[in-house]
Amino acid sequence: MNQGLPPAAAPVDLNGPGHYLHWGVIQLSVANLVVIGVMVLIFVLALVLRFPKGGDRK
């Protein structure tokens, strides 16, 4: 299989050595931590932010 082409150049290159965090038994990549953190943040915002109201009917 020809795998000659390098990955297309991206503005943010995530191909370098990975960054990892350790707390006791827990090991987590920074990338996964960011994803999980963003998910929790979005969840909290979805609960807290006011939803625009449509018109009442009947």
Binding site: L14, N15, G16, G18, S29, V30, A31, N32, V35
Partner: peptide, 8 residues
């Protein structure tokens, strides 16, 4: 859970 490099 992990991926090569810094990808999620």
């Amino acid at each position: 859970m992990n991926e090569t490099g810094n990808f999620p």
